[in-house]
């Protein structure tokens, strides 16, 4: 664990894998819940957890640098199920990257258990991991100016679902009617860091 000071009252804790980042994130949430950590924001990402709004960052940095990385948290919670039609315009490109027939993409994707590694880009947008590294795909060379809300998409090691229409360079493999973000709902975000996710295929239109 490497602890980097950030500005006046934040720390960036760097670990060596996404799994370690998830374990660290869970441990930091546990500490905040029990009252032994005071932080305004705890933001997990690909290989890091950011702690912002700290009272005494130097003391916490020293403590974390000496701490053992916690074990991965148990996967006790049920998975959120997202119904999806595998009808995206980039299915053929993804199949080519994966080296499988086009029809296999849906099966492989729907058989994978995903986990929200972190959120970002837009409220409710989760970066989901779970596919083996051989299924990493590049972003599209030319991003689309408008990706429709509900698009299920791949980039690098991640799967994501666009909460609202926005520009985007991810490979689109399907569509869902699930509402990823609704600020009038509690909680507003369907997916938050650590959530387990399964994509459930629906019949096409």
């Amino acid at each position: 664990m490497k602890v980097l000071p950030v500005g006046e009252d934040a720390l960036l804790v760097e670990v060596s894998s996404g799994e370690e980042a998830q374990a660290l994130h869970a441990e930091l949430l546990r500490r905040r819940a029990e009252g032994s950590l005071s932080a305004r924001e705890i933001v997990p990402a690909a290989r890091t957890v950011l702690l912002d709004g700290l009272d005494s960052p130097a003391r916490l940095a020293a403590e974390l640098a000496a701490a053992e990385l916690p074990p991965a948290p148990p996967r006790a919670r049920e998975a959120v199920e997202i119904p999806v039609r595998y009808d995206g315009p980039d299915l053929a490109d993804v199949a080519a990257h994966w080296g499988v027939p086009e029809g296999e993409v849906a099966r492989i994707h729907a058989e994978t258990e995903f986990r929200v590694a972190f959120c970002g880009f837009a409220p409710g947008f989760g970066y989901l991991t779970g596919l083996p590294p051989r299924y990493d795909v590049p972003r599209r060379a030319t991003p689309r100016t408008a990706v429709p809300a509900g698009s299920v998409a791949l980039a690098g090691p991640y799967t994501g679902v666009y909460p609202r229409s926005s520009p985007g360079g991810w490979q689109l493999i399907g569509t869902t009617d699930a509402v990823l973000w609704d600020h009038a709902r509690v909680p507003a975000a369907l997916l938050s860091p650590g959530t387990l996710v399964r994509f459930v295929p629906e019949a096409g239109p």
Binding site: V6, G7, E41, A45, R47, T48, V49, L50
Partner: peptide, 10 residues
């Protein structure tokens, strides 16, 4: 750089 959390004033 893999995506990481960013603070105000970064």
């Amino acid at each position: 750089l893999p995506s990481e959390g960013v603070v105000l004033g970064a």
